[in-house]
Design a protein around this nucleic acid. Structure first.
Length: 135
DNA sequence: GCCAACGTTGGC
DNA sequence: GCCAACGTTGGC
């Protein structure tokens, strides 16, 4: 099983909204690197849900409910979506500042490629972040 | 609101 | 195919 991280601005689509919706279509990705990560996701893969701009922290864990298919909002086959559903909220949200401050996490895509909206997380990074969340 | 980082576009 | 200009993202 692989691990991922997806970003969203809470004003656009928040973790709370995802919990309320039970499941959502992760649409609107218009970046090739991010799209390739969407395509690599397998059903059941887990991902961190990160709030950008407001909060600037990892707030919860979601998982892939349906593997990729063409983005209905795109109108062609270039862009894809996955369906995502919430697993659980982290005991403590993990702020970006804490991740940046941890020597073990300097290679995380979140630190190195700040603007990438869908990114892979290694199992090691996943465990460290969980630990920081008090899990 | 500013600005750095980075991706995309388009002229040549 | 290079690279400058431009637009967007996102942290601060």
């Amino acid at each position: 099983m692989a691990y991922w991280l997806i970003k969203s601005e809470p004003s656009t689509y928040s973790w709370e909204q995802l919990v309320k919706d039970k499941q959502t279509v992760w649409d609107g990705v218009r970046n090739y690197a991010a799209r390739n990560h969407l395509k690599a996701m397998k059903k059941g893969d887990e991902m961190f849900f990160y709030h950008s701009n407001e909060g600037v922290e990892i707030v919860g864990i979601a998982k892939v409910a349906r593997e990729y298919y063409p983005d209905p909002t795109a109108g062609d086959d270039t862009w894809v979506v996955v369906d995502v559903k919430p697993v659980r909220k982290l005991k403590k949200a993990v702020p970006l500042a804490a991740i940046k401050a941890d020597k073990r996490l300097q290679d995380m895509a979140l630190v190195r490629l700040g603007r990438l909206s869908v990114q892979p997380v290694t199992e090691k990074e996943w465990q460290i972040v969980l630990e920081m969340a008090g899990e």
